[in-house]
């Protein structure tokens, strides 16, 4: 899994290519991936898109009265444009990401959520990305050899 978090071959039979690199049968790779997906360790096999290239997105934060948190989170979850939605231990206690095809649609979605929940939203779009995504190193703690 460590090897194939990126640069999965863009070939017709990617799992056969992985199997060949590992010296095992294709069916072994597929069975393992299906099992890891069933146990929720593997989320999916496929692309991680570059933020703000195919569409626009923003992080949004809200100060929600604790007794309304589950209700407000539920309203926000119902919006298909929302992906991550987390409670965090802070007076800004609800954090979520909104994605849209363009800025106008994003603004409309955020305004709609604000109206629907009656909670004012702090819109914090990414201005610059400093992270180079190489996947997640599972040899933890990582040795510093490389």
């Amino acid at each position: 899994m460590n090897e194939f978090q990126r640069d999965l071959p863009l070939s017709r039979e990617p799992y056969r290519d992985i199997a060949a690199r590992l010296g095992v049968e294709e069916e072994t790779v597929l069975t393992l991936l299906r099992r890891l997906q069933a146990s929720r360790i593997v989320s999916r096999v496929g692309p991680v898109f570059t933020p703000n290239r195919l569409g626009v997105s923003t992080l949004v934060a809200a100060k929600v009265p604790p007794d309304r948190l589950v209700e407000v989170a539920s309203l926000i979850n119902r919006c298909p444009a929302v992906n991550h939605n987390y409670e965090r231990e802070h007076h800004y206690n609800l954090w979520f990401v909104v994605t849209a095809p363009d800025q106008a649609e994003l603004d409309r979605t955020v305004a709609g959520l604000e109206k629907q929940t009656g909670v004012s939203l702090l819109v914090l779009p990414m201005l610059r990305d400093y992270f180079i995504d190489l996947g997640f190193d599972m040899r933890w703690p990582p040795d510093d050899a490389d």
């Binding site: 978090q5 999965l8 989320s43 991680v48 898109f49 933020p51 995504d133």
Partner: peptide, 20 residues
């Protein structure tokens, strides 16, 4: 084409940190 134009940041197995 999506990969070539930089729209795909990485392509492969996506894991969940929590479950690891």
């Amino acid at each position: 084409h999506l990969a070539g134009e930089g729209a795909i940041r990485r392509y492969g197995i996506v894991v969940r940190h929590h479950e690891l």
